[in-house]
Structure formats: structure tokens, C-alpha cells
Design a binder for these strands. Sequence first.
DNA 1: ATAATTCTTGACTAATCGTTCCAGAAAGGA
DNA 2: TCCTTTCTGGAACGATTAGTCAAGAATTAT
Lengths: 193, 193
Amino acid sequence: MARHKEFDRDEALQRAMEVFWSRGYEAASVGELVKHMGINRQSLYDTFGDKHALYLAALDRYREVEGRKLFEVLERPGPVKRALRQLFETVVEHSLGEGDRRGCFMGNATSELAGRCRATAEKACGQMAAAEEALYRALLRGKREGEIGAGRDLRAVARFLYSSLQGLQLMSKATRDRKTLEDVVRVTLSVLD
Amino acid sequence: MARHKEFDRDEALQRAMEVFWSRGYEAASVGELVKHMGINRQSLYDTFGDKHALYLAALDRYREVEGRKLFEVLERPGPVKRALRQLFETVVEHSLGEGDRRGCFMGNATSELAGRCRATAEKACGQMAAAEEALYRALLRGKREGEIGAGRDLRAVARFLYSSLQGLQLMSKATRDRKTLEDVVRVTLSVLD
DNA sequence: ATAATTCTTGACTAATCGTTCCAGAAAGGA
DNA sequence: TCCTTTCTGGAACGATTAGTCAAGAATTAT
């Protein structure tokens, strides 16, 4: 009956995510998106609706792909404190790398749009809850294995860690001073002792 | 010889700051700025140059006025820990207020522009250094007065506190759940014990 | 082959963007 | 009063924006 799609939807979405990630919502033009996605302008509108819907889809993809990638270190066996240190150091190393400092896409979206776009705020809340949960599970395991003291409010600590991760990524957009970022990480992780 | 300016430059700049603060750089149009500033379009260009220069001037004003306002609690006599708690709780209360959640203007600027605008990154660095210094002075006083243990790297703690403040303000853009924000504050301040 | 469907292409809206220009009103000093 | 300067308002600039339309090429199933 009909012709098939000639491009891979997920791949195009991934490319769109990269544009939104490094440019933000407002500054990313549809022309730019079309170019980087490697698809036709019309295909973009046919497949994703409009710019805003594409942005929300990109946020979903970020959470599913990049979020999972970042937090999976917490699922691996071994000391939880070490895993958390690795998580934070991954962020630092990535920030100090040669690429452009685009921070956390979800954090950027929160900063730019969450205050005036309900859908974005909900995505940000969802990501926050998922990350909090991943951190909480890791902390629970640490408690169970005697690595973390029993008297702690682990829910609060998980929320704190997510907030710190966001603060760190924001700071890494302003400075490339390794010492500064490592100071932040060191003190942050000291709450686990 | 000539006519006087009929508007107050600082007042107009304050208004411009408010627009940029709640809308961001890209989403704030010159028309919107003109309207809220209460001055003529031409006067805006005559007085501030262009939109980007106005934005940078607004960042300067934010640091001088709002930054000073927020951190002055640290200069007041009394226990340093209590002052720090007040600082963080001010942020939480402000976030939970009825107004729109615009977060920290400097944080927003960092997130939106620091990655691709050198001038913005420098302003963000400057603000960061100033805040770090204010926090560091407070911590030093706490140490001198025996409130804070002697073995701590206070420079690192000051950096950590600024990062946490930014993380907190970002989270407050996504959620209005008081418990979540207070969890973050409580754990953050626990590093001082 | 034929018909149905989709992809591709580029031109095309209508609106908005930041910015500039211009003419007239207002206000100060001489 | 007269000259100079600035403020004001609106019109206009060219560029860019998000989004649409239409026509032809390509690919499928019948």
C-alpha cells in the first residue's frame, strides 16, 4: 500500500535532543533542528507535531536514555559510596572535557521553561522522582550492607544528592576550575560518612 | 543646553532585570522590555545599547542588588549556623510563595547562556566568587567563634553551599513540595555539624 | 501495471524579531 | 526668544521565526 519511513524515528529524536540540549528551547530554530536531524522539514512536522511537542519528546528520550546511562552505575555491585563518587566524578570529568558545556538537559529545561510551561515542569518532576528513587535504592542497599549509618533519613539524603548533582552541573557551566568542582563533590559526599 | 532624562536609569534597569529574570534572555522580547520598563523604545537603545548589553547590565544589577540582599543575613551578628539556615529558608519560602517561580537570575543566565556566551559566563563566575567569599567569611567567623569544627576545609564548604543553593533553587522551579525542599536544606546544613 | 500512500523539495505564508530612522514635542541654557 | 539637545511615538527596516501548502518522486501492495 504505502511507502515506508526512510529515517529512524529514535535516531532523529536523538539528534533533536542534542540540539535542544546544547542550545535550549528558544534558541534552537526549526531550521537548525531539521539540519541536525538529517530529515526533511515536513517530516519533522508529520512525525513529531510541532517544535514544542518535539521538545517534550526529546525530554522523554533524555530521561530514558541519558538518565538511565548516568544512574546505572548505582545498580552495579560493590560499595555504594564508591558508586556515588563515580557518579559525581563522571559529571565532573564530562564537564571538564573539550565539548561544549551543556550541563543536564533536564536541568536546563527546568531553568528555562518549568516556571511557565506545565508540561515541562511535569517532565522535570518525573525525572527528579526517578533519580531520587535510584539514589534512594542505592542508599537503602548501603544501609543494608552496613555501609551507611542506620539513623539517617535516606529519602532526604536522596533528594539532597539529586539537588547537589544539579547544582554541580550548573556550576560546571560557569567554571572549568577542577578544584572548585571537586571541592563541591568532596563536601557533598561527606554527608554519607 | 539640553533636556534632562525623564526616567531613572536604575529604575528602568531594575524593571528590565525583572523581565529577563522571569522570562530568560531569548524569550524576552524588546517590545516586552519596553513595556515593562516604562520607557520609549528609542530610549532603551540610546541608554543601554542593545538587548544583549541590557541583559548584561541587568545581570550586574542583580548581583549588586539582589545578591547583596540575599547574603546580607550572613553579616548580621549571631550564630552563623542560624544565619545560614535563614538564608536557605528564605529561598524556600520565596519559592513557595504565590509569585512565579523564577529561581535565581544568575543561575538561569548560567543555564541558558554561559555555555555559549563568554560575557555571561564571566558574570556568573564573578557572582559565584562573590557569593563564595560571603559564605567563606561567615564560615570563618563560625570557626573563630567555636561554632564550626577546626578541621574543616572552609573554602570547599563555601563552594559546596553555593552549589547547594543553586541546586535548591533549580528544584524549586520544578516542585512546590515543601517537604522535598526542606529535606534538601536539612541535609545540606548537616555538613556543618 | 495500477492505485495508494508517503517521502522529499522548495516555495510560501503571516507574524515576530531586533534595530534604525524620522519628525515633532518638550525642556534646558543663552 | 532662540538654539540645542533629548525625549517621544510611530513607522519602517530586513532578517528570521514557526508552520503550511502543493507538486513530484519513490515505494509499496494489489
